[in-house]
Amino acid sequence: MIPLAAVLPPAQPLMLAALLFTIGAAGVLLRRNIIIVLMSVELMLNAVNITLVAVSRAMLQLDGQVFVFFSLTIAAAEVAVGLALVVALHRSLGSSDVDDVSSLRG
C-alpha cells in the first residue's frame, strides 16, 4: 500500500476539512446560482466526509468510513432531487437565481 498513509497525523486532514467546509459555506452564502449553491453544499458535505475518514483512520474504526459511504449515497439522492428541483424551478421561473425563489407564493 501507499506508505504515506501510516504517517499522516489526523490534525492536518481535519484542518483541511475545516477550511473546505468554510469555503463551501462561503459558496452557499455568497453565490446566487442555484447549481453553484448546490455544489457548495456538496463541498461542505465532502469536507465532513474527509473529517469522518480522517477520524476513522485515527481511531482505527471502520465506522467512519461506513458513514461516509452512506453519506455518499445520500448525497447522490440529494443531488438527484435537488437537480430535479432546479430544473423545475428553472422552468417555472426562467432563472436559476436562488434569490428569485424568495416568495412563498405558489
Partner: peptide
C-alpha cells in the same frame, strides 16, 4: 457572511488543530 465565515473558519480550524485521540 465573510465576517461570520471568518469566525467560523477560524474556530473550526482551531478545533481541528486539536486533532483526535489516537486509537
Amino acid at each position: 457572511a465573510l465576517a461570520a465565515l471568518g469566525v467560523l473558519g477560524a474556530a473550526l480550524v482551531r478545533v481541528a488543530a486539536l486533532g483526535v485521540p489516537a486509537a
